[in-house]
Protein backbone atom coordinates (compact mmCIF):
# COMPACT_ATOMS: atom_id res chain seq x y z
CA UNK A 1 0.00 0.00 0.00
CA UNK A 2 1.30 3.43 -0.82
CA UNK A 3 3.16 5.15 1.97
CA UNK A 4 3.25 2.10 4.24
CA UNK A 5 6.04 -0.42 4.60
CA UNK A 6 5.21 -4.06 4.05
CA UNK A 7 5.06 -4.67 7.78
CA UNK A 8 2.88 -1.62 8.34
CA UNK A 9 0.54 -2.67 5.53
CA UNK A 10 0.10 -6.02 7.20
CA UNK A 11 -0.67 -4.32 10.50
CA UNK A 12 -3.25 -2.12 8.78
CA UNK A 13 -5.10 -4.99 7.15
CA UNK A 14 -4.70 -7.31 10.16
CA UNK A 15 -4.45 -5.05 13.18
CA UNK A 16 -3.18 -6.74 16.37
CA UNK A 17 -4.44 -6.03 19.85
CA UNK A 18 -7.64 -4.24 18.99
CA UNK A 19 -9.88 -3.68 21.98
CA UNK A 20 -9.50 -3.00 25.69
CA UNK A 21 -7.00 -4.51 28.11
CA UNK A 22 -8.49 -6.59 30.92
CA UNK A 23 -9.16 -4.83 34.20
CA UNK A 24 -7.43 -3.41 36.08
CA UNK A 25 -6.17 -1.40 33.15
CA UNK A 26 -4.85 2.08 32.49
CA UNK A 27 -6.03 4.20 29.61
CA UNK A 28 -4.45 6.95 27.54
CA UNK A 29 -6.01 8.97 24.76
CA UNK A 30 -4.74 11.24 22.02
CA UNK A 31 -6.59 13.18 19.37
CA UNK A 32 -5.55 15.45 16.56
CA UNK A 33 -7.07 18.85 16.06
CA UNK A 34 -5.52 18.80 12.59
CA UNK A 35 -7.32 15.77 11.20
CA UNK A 36 -9.90 14.77 13.80
CA UNK A 37 -8.29 11.37 14.40
CA UNK A 38 -8.64 9.81 17.84
CA UNK A 39 -6.82 6.89 19.41
CA UNK A 40 -7.11 5.16 22.77
CA UNK A 41 -4.58 2.80 24.37
CA UNK A 42 -5.26 0.63 27.36
CA UNK A 43 -2.58 -1.32 29.17
CA UNK A 44 -2.37 -3.81 31.97
CA UNK A 45 0.78 -3.84 34.08
CA UNK A 46 2.03 -6.63 36.35
CA UNK A 47 3.69 -6.32 39.80
CA UNK A 48 7.11 -6.09 38.18
CA UNK A 49 5.97 -2.95 36.28
CA UNK A 50 5.96 -4.89 33.02
CA UNK A 51 3.18 -4.29 30.50
CA UNK A 52 1.30 -7.58 30.24
CA UNK A 53 -1.38 -6.40 27.80
CA UNK A 54 -1.59 -3.47 25.40
CA UNK A 55 -4.71 -2.81 23.36
CA UNK A 56 -5.92 0.01 21.18
CA UNK A 57 -8.90 1.48 19.41
CA UNK A 58 -8.54 4.11 16.74
CA UNK A 59 -10.62 6.32 14.51
CA UNK A 60 -8.21 7.52 11.89
CA UNK A 61 -6.24 6.78 8.80
CA UNK A 62 -4.32 3.66 7.83
CA UNK A 63 -1.11 5.18 9.24
CA UNK A 64 -2.69 5.64 12.65
CA UNK A 65 -4.15 2.14 12.67
CA UNK A 66 -0.88 0.52 11.58
CA UNK A 67 1.17 2.63 14.04
CA UNK A 68 -1.08 1.75 16.94
CA UNK A 69 -1.06 -1.94 16.09
CA UNK A 70 2.73 -2.02 15.76
CA UNK A 71 3.22 -0.09 18.95
CA UNK A 72 1.05 -2.44 21.01
CA UNK A 73 3.16 -5.37 19.81
CA UNK A 74 6.38 -3.53 20.63
CA UNK A 75 5.50 -2.74 24.24
CA UNK A 76 3.99 -6.00 25.46
CA UNK A 77 6.38 -7.67 27.96
CA UNK A 78 8.37 -4.45 28.23
CA UNK A 79 8.67 -2.59 31.57
CA UNK A 80 6.74 0.69 31.62
CA UNK A 81 10.00 2.67 31.67
CA UNK A 82 11.20 1.00 28.48
CA UNK A 83 7.78 1.33 26.87
CA UNK A 84 7.72 5.04 27.66
CA UNK A 85 11.08 5.44 25.98
CA UNK A 86 9.80 3.56 22.93
CA UNK A 87 6.89 6.00 22.89
CA UNK A 88 9.25 8.96 23.09
CA UNK A 89 11.29 7.70 20.16
CA UNK A 90 8.48 8.03 17.71
CA UNK A 91 10.89 8.34 14.77
CA UNK A 92 11.58 4.63 14.97
CA UNK A 93 7.89 3.96 14.34
CA UNK A 94 7.65 6.64 11.66
CA UNK A 95 10.31 4.80 9.65
CA UNK A 96 7.61 2.30 8.67
CA UNK A 97 5.90 5.02 6.70
CA UNK A 98 8.51 6.04 4.16
CA UNK A 99 6.40 8.37 2.03
CA UNK A 100 4.16 10.05 4.55
CA UNK A 101 2.31 12.93 2.97
CA UNK A 102 3.49 16.23 4.38
CA UNK A 103 1.19 16.99 7.26
CA UNK A 104 0.59 13.35 8.14
CA UNK A 105 3.64 12.99 10.37
CA UNK A 106 1.39 13.50 13.36
CA UNK A 107 -0.35 10.14 12.84
CA UNK A 108 2.36 7.84 14.28
CA UNK A 109 2.94 10.48 16.95
CA UNK A 110 -0.68 10.23 18.09
CA UNK A 111 -0.25 6.52 18.77
CA UNK A 112 2.88 7.26 20.81
CA UNK A 113 1.12 10.00 22.76
CA UNK A 114 -1.76 7.71 23.65
CA UNK A 115 0.66 5.01 24.84
CA UNK A 116 2.58 7.47 27.01
CA UNK A 117 -0.68 8.83 28.42
CA UNK A 118 -1.69 5.30 29.45
CA UNK A 119 1.70 4.75 31.12
CA UNK A 120 1.31 8.05 32.95
CA UNK A 121 -2.04 6.99 34.28
CA UNK A 122 -0.40 3.82 35.54
CA UNK A 123 2.51 5.76 37.08
CA UNK A 124 0.21 8.17 38.91
CA UNK A 125 -1.69 5.25 40.38
CA UNK A 126 1.49 3.39 41.30
CA UNK A 127 2.85 6.50 43.01
CA UNK A 128 -0.32 6.94 45.02
CA UNK A 129 -0.29 3.33 46.11
CA UNK A 130 3.37 3.28 47.02
CA UNK A 131 3.88 2.38 50.70
CA UNK A 132 7.66 2.50 51.07
CA UNK A 133 9.57 4.59 53.63
CA UNK A 134 10.43 7.28 51.16
CA UNK A 135 7.90 8.89 48.81
CA UNK A 136 8.27 7.56 45.29
CA UNK A 137 8.46 10.19 42.56
CA UNK A 138 9.63 8.53 39.35
CA UNK A 139 7.81 5.22 39.07
CA UNK A 140 9.41 4.35 35.74
CA UNK A 141 12.97 4.39 37.13
CA UNK A 142 11.98 3.96 40.72
CA UNK A 143 13.54 7.15 42.12
CA UNK A 144 12.42 8.43 45.53
CA UNK A 145 11.89 12.00 46.64
CA UNK A 146 14.88 11.73 48.99
CA UNK A 147 17.15 10.51 46.22
CA UNK A 148 16.13 13.42 44.01
CA UNK A 149 16.67 15.90 46.85
CA UNK A 150 20.15 14.49 47.44
CA UNK A 151 21.06 14.86 43.76
CA UNK A 152 19.79 18.43 43.67
CA UNK A 153 21.72 19.36 46.80
CA UNK A 154 24.91 17.59 45.79
CA UNK A 155 25.09 18.90 42.22
CA UNK A 156 23.21 22.16 42.44
CA UNK A 157 20.66 21.06 39.84
CA UNK A 158 18.32 23.74 38.51
CA UNK A 159 15.96 22.06 36.02
CA UNK A 160 13.94 18.89 35.50
CA UNK A 161 16.16 18.00 32.54
CA UNK A 162 19.26 18.23 34.78
CA UNK A 163 17.62 16.00 37.36
CA UNK A 164 16.77 13.44 34.67
CA UNK A 165 20.34 13.48 33.40
CA UNK A 166 21.70 13.06 36.93
CA UNK A 167 19.49 10.22 38.19
CA UNK A 168 17.04 9.16 35.43
CA UNK A 169 14.06 10.50 37.38
CA UNK A 170 11.55 11.87 34.88
CA UNK A 171 13.16 10.02 31.98
CA UNK A 172 10.25 7.68 31.33
CA UNK A 173 6.60 8.60 30.95
CA UNK A 174 7.12 12.13 32.30
CA UNK A 175 4.21 12.00 34.73
CA UNK A 176 6.48 13.15 37.56
CA UNK A 177 7.90 16.27 35.89
CA UNK A 178 5.59 18.55 37.84
CA UNK A 179 6.60 16.87 41.09
CA UNK A 180 10.30 17.19 40.30
CA UNK A 181 9.74 20.85 39.46
CA UNK A 182 8.13 21.35 42.87
CA UNK A 183 11.02 19.59 44.62
CA UNK A 184 13.46 21.81 42.75
CA UNK A 185 11.61 24.95 43.80
CA UNK A 186 11.41 23.89 47.45
CA UNK A 187 15.07 22.85 47.55
CA UNK A 188 16.33 25.95 45.85
CA UNK A 189 14.22 28.18 48.11
CA UNK A 190 15.71 26.47 51.15
CA UNK A 191 19.25 26.77 49.94
CA UNK A 192 18.94 30.45 49.03
Amino acid sequence: MSGLSEVATDHFFNPRNVGEADEPSFTGRAASLICGAHVRFSIQVDEAHVISQAKFKAAGCSVLVASSSMLTERVVNVPTAGAAIIGQNCDELTRNFPDLEPGSEHCPKLACEALIAAIREYSDAARDEWVGDEALICTCFFVSERAIEREIAARGLKSVAEVTRACNAGGGCGSCHQLIQEILETQNDLSR
Binding site: S32, I34, C35, A37, G60, C61, E101, P102, G103, S104
Partner: peptide, 17 residues
Protein backbone atom coordinates in the same frame (compact mmCIF):
# COMPACT_ATOMS: atom_id res chain seq x y z
CA UNK B 1 -7.49 -5.18 -1.35
CA UNK B 2 -10.50 -7.35 -2.16
CA UNK B 3 -10.43 -6.03 -5.73
CA UNK B 4 -13.44 -3.73 -5.40
CA UNK B 5 -13.12 -0.07 -6.50
CA UNK B 6 -15.22 2.58 -4.76
CA UNK B 7 -14.62 6.11 -3.55
CA UNK B 8 -15.05 7.92 -0.27
CA UNK B 9 -16.24 11.38 0.65
CA UNK B 10 -13.68 11.63 3.39
CA UNK B 11 -10.19 11.66 2.04
CA UNK B 12 -7.67 12.34 4.79
CA UNK B 13 -5.93 15.20 3.03
CA UNK B 14 -2.45 16.16 3.99
CA UNK B 15 -3.44 18.87 6.42
CA UNK B 16 -7.19 18.72 6.83
CA UNK B 17 -9.42 15.77 7.48
Amino acid sequence: QAGICVSTGSACHSTTH
